[in-house]
Amino acid sequence: HNLTITQGKLFFHYNPKLCLSEIHKMEEVSGTKGRQERNDIALKTNGDQASCENELLKFSYIRTSFDKILLRWEPYWPPDFRDLLGFMLFYKEAPYQNVTEFDGQDACGSNSWTVVDIDPPLRSNDPKSQNHPGWLMRGLKPWTQYAIFVKTLVTFSDERRTYGAKSDIIYVQTDATNPSVPLDPISVSNSSSQIILKWKPPSDPNGNITHYLVFWERQAEDSELFELDYCLKGLKLPSRTWSPPFESEDSQKHNQSEYEDSAGECCSCPKTDSQILKELEESSFRKTFEDYLHNVVFVPRKTSSGTGAEDPRPSRKRRSLGDVGNVTVAVPTVAAFPNTSSTSVPTSPEEHRPFEKVVNKESLVISGLRHFTGYRIELQACNQDTPEERCSVAAYVSARTMPEAKADDIVGPVTHEIFENNVVHLMWQEPKEPNGLIVLYEVSYRRYGDEELHLCVSRKHFALERGCRLRGLSPGNYSVRIRATSLAGNGSWTEPTYFYVTDYLDVPSNIA
């Protein structure tokens, strides 16, 4: 807008934040220059609390790290170098490059900038070799853009010569660093050979998330399962459950009422301010606690030095998902009996873990797994792929695949051998790939016309006998059925096997 004052003059007093240069501009645009008398524009009460600059400061050096910015700028000295009290560095987070010096300023003089007072450097006698002032900004957020400017702080001049310097606002972004852990990993099994893994992005990506790394490792069953005799009275049979499938998407929606109208769909109840505040506090606490764990609990591995020492970490090797089922080394339970199943799973520490690289999504279907087997899954978020990966501390989750139908069934015939004193040795093959492992066998036998009897055969007993022995049988026709019990439950009964026990007292003698 054009402003013209045809008559009258300007009068400025007691404006401590208004620089004289701005008042002189007002004289020019209003056409009143030359009308004012000496005392109409006070030299001592206008701009006496402001830094009124008329020179431009330029930054000469900028260096960044993930949490620091090192700045240096060209030296500046007023005509009387004693008038320079120091520099004021202003900075704040700036997602967009549209910041002005006066953003967030209120009537009390406060604003949204963080201000650092910096002492002037030592003055050199040689004007050509003056030290460049600077400042190291610490405690910054990774991968965050900051708006920065600097200006001088000078003393009051009796001659009211307006001098000083100020830089333009520059924008500097800190470097990326390792992201925080992925949030809320959930693993479920939808079949006997697959596990579905879902997660949420890290709360602090500290860069642009480029991919996720998912490692999985087959877990050995508890050692007590191999040692305890679950045929003993009072000892509860062990059981394991597989990871249940995901709930429906509708039930997972946030901010939804727990109660549904019987007449149909209901609208979600909005969260109160107290609920939102509580969630923010919980989120802040979780982030602080995660940072504490990362800094205190997890110790970084030592990389190899120039002395030739090897990095103890196993090298990563990509495998196809079809090879995942046989990740671990199978060892027989008892070496003397080769027909026992290889369900003991000690994992070799030198073995390469299978892994998958996930790009542009937060889910993965891990296939080719062994049925009813526990897996430990390790999830890392990465925001750099080359020249070397920059990934987060791992988040861990466990899951067990679903049982395989008929995996616990005894394959092959049940054979028998009759000894003296009416002892019958029953023999059968253990299931080759049971659900988890076989903890015991149930032997059901009966003599024709009598009630059915049951015998429990422990895992250890089966390994020693290759089956079991029935003792003290009365003469007669017998039928026997056997079924295995694994961590997933009972298998199917075998087809009945028949044998006849004679009275050993009636056996004919070869003595003449």
Rank of each mutant, 00 (worst) to 15 (best):
A394M: 11
T288A: 04
D273K: 07
L440Q: 15
S342H: 14
L505D: 09
P270V: 10
G489L: 05
P434K: 04
G322D: 14
E279S: 08
P431F: 02
P300A: 10
E227Y: 05
Q256E: 03
K233L: 14
D408L: 02
F419V: 06
S344I: 04
N421A: 09
S315I: 12
D273P: 15
N208C: 10
V331L: 12
V480L: 06
M402Q: 15
G306V: 11
V501E: 01
H371W: 08
V414D: 00
T343V: 07
T340L: 09
E247Q: 13
N421V: 10
V393H: 13
V297Q: 15
R483S: 03
K233E: 14
V297D: 10
S283Y: 14
N339H: 09
S305Q: 13
E249A: 13
S223K: 07
P346T: 14
G322S: 08
K460I: 08
D250G: 08
K361A: 09
N421K: 12
A405L: 06
F355L: 10
D291H: 11
F298S: 07
Y259W: 08
R318Y: 06
H352I: 04
R286W: 07
V327F: 07
K302P: 12
K287D: 09
S248P: 09
I209C: 12
F355N: 13
N422L: 08
T502E: 15
S257I: 04
S474G: 06
V214N: 01
F298W: 04
L379I: 09
S304N: 15
A263D: 09
E362G: 03
R316G: 04
G489F: 07
L277R: 12
N326R: 09
G308P: 14
D261F: 08
G325S: 14
R318T: 08
V324N: 12
K287P: 11
S268Q: 14
S262I: 15
N360Q: 08
D506W: 11
P245G: 12
E452R: 06
D291Y: 15
L321T: 13
S315G: 13
S367P: 13
N510P: 11
T307P: 13
L213S: 15
R459L: 10
V439P: 06
T288N: 13
K406H: 09
D229K: 05
A309R: 11
E451K: 05
H454G: 15
D250F: 12
R218E: 10
C267Y: 12
L379G: 00
C269M: 03
R481P: 00
C468I: 07
S509R: 06
S284P: 04
V423T: 14
T340D: 13
A484H: 00
L237E: 15
N510Q: 08
L232Y: 10
S342K: 03
L228F: 12
D250H: 08
L235D: 05
V507M: 14
D506G: 13
E224Q: 13
V414H: 01
R353A: 04
T272M: 09
P244K: 09
N255Y: 07
H211S: 04
L453A: 02
N360P: 09
A395I: 06
M402G: 03
T343P: 08
N295K: 11
L213M: 14
L470E: 00
Q275D: 07
L232H: 12
R483M: 14
Q256F: 10
Q380T: 15
S363W: 10
N208G: 11
